[in-house]
Nucleic acid binder design. Sequence first.
DNA 1: GGTCGATATGTCACATATGGCATAATTTAC
DNA 2: GTAAATTATGCCATATGTGACATATCGACC
Lengths: 110, 110
Amino acid sequence: MEEDKRRRLEESGWKVGSAADFLDLTEEEAAYVELRLALSETLRERRMEKGLTQEELARRIGSSQSRVAKMEASDSTVSLDLLVKGLLATGATRGDIAAAIAPEGTTRAA
Amino acid sequence: MEEDKRRRLEESGWKVGSAADFLDLTEEEAAYVELRLALSETLRERRMEKGLTQEELARRIGSSQSRVAKMEASDSTVSLDLLVKGLLATGATRGDIAAAIAPEGTTRAA
DNA sequence: GGTCGATATGTCACATATGGCATAATTTAC
DNA sequence: GTAAATTATGCCATATGTGACATATCGACC
């Protein structure tokens, strides 16, 4: 489970710093990367729940299928801005986004 | 209070769309802008609580005083990525950021 | 096997965000 | 008052993110 997350990060271009060792991430860097990962996972979940294809979601945000694929893969060339816009396009509210960002078990329903 | 928010937005380069009328923002656009605004306000609060100058915070994130000023002003040329990095540099956790994003009264302490 | 819809990956020209700098405006301390 | 510190604003060269496209890979179905 944790091993799985590590592999996904490395495959997404996150050789943070020059040491490029996963364990050398500072707390800040780790939090930043995990936050992005949480958002991209939530994006995929929400898109699928809505029964949308990447192509359809792409059209909603004026982007392309390939970029949506990269969003969901947490590719390093994807901005937080685009991730958030993607989430909003699936109908997510600020509260939904906050819930996606917060570490597990730290929020409750409004 | 609401009027105040509107003015700050307009001064930050958020003439969204071409109609440029505040009331023409879609729900999504409004949520996006408000989310950014919430983060920039929280950034300023946290920086001041820590007794940091913009200059000092800038150094922590490898940026410049002028950019930090723009972050706190929610300038339209500032990315969410930079805002989040700034918050993390003040010691904010994912939970802190989530709390900043969520609309008032929808979270509780972990 | 093969077809088809969906997703993944690589590349590129162009748009936007970036740090840095100068300088103006504002606040704070004396 | 005014000097010093801090913050705001404008600008620019460059770095980074962007949509678009081609193409590869995957899965379901026959």
